[in-house]
């Protein structure tokens, strides 16, 4: 486990969160596409935490980021004190069928969660007391 990152829950913190994920992905020797997808998933959910969990709810707070790496997987953890949310409920907003519709008719929302869910091997969310805890799991390829 690398040293945890603690950032203020504002959009300007997305760069630091991305850098943390990229460093963890490199240390875990993920494939480039896996590393990109992991960064995408974390970035999308961190964006939602900041804009919906904190800003829209009139709250402010921090996001804590840390990783756990085992021979089989790399897990990125996000913890925040924003409003409770369940990304699994948002998942239904965008479907593969909707993605085939002409762009003129597409709604603007929901894409981030759709991408996040599809970009990692496992996605876990839980509310623990007054905190949201989100985990992004990528399975590491066995070293030849």
């Amino acid at each position: 486990m690398g040293e945890a990152l603690r950032v203020v829950g504002v959009l300007e913190s997305l760069g630091a969160i991305a850098q943390y994920v990229k460093t963890a992905a490199a240390a875990a020797k993920l494939e480039p596409a896996q590393a990109y997808n992991l960064r995408l998933a974390v970035d999308e959910i961190a964006t939602n935490i900041i804009t919906h969990g904190y800003q829209d709810a009139g709250l402010s707070g921090e996001i804590l980021v840390w990783d756990t790496c085992t021979p089989k997987s790399l897990i990125i953890h996000l913890e925040d004190y924003g409003q409770a949310y369940n990304p699994h409920q948002w998942q239904a907003e965008v479907t593969p069928e909707l993605c085939q519709q002409p762009l003129e008719q597409r709604p603007l929302g929901g894409l981030g969660v759709y991408l996040a869910m599809r970009s990692v091997d496992q996605f876990r969310y839980g509310r623990v007391g007054d905190r949201n805890h989100t985990e992004f799991v990528i399975f590491r390829n066995p070293t030849p």
Binding site: A18, Y36, R39, L40, D43, E44, T47, L103, E104, R106, L108, L111, G112, Y114, L115
Partner: peptide, 19 residues
């Protein structure tokens, strides 16, 4: 090197405007 859904929404707006 990187684009999230925020970038896709930006592309969508530009697409709609030009169309």
């Amino acid at each position: 090197p990187y684009m999230s859904s925020a970038g896709l929404r930006m592309l969508l707006s530009l697409y709609r405007q030009t169309t």
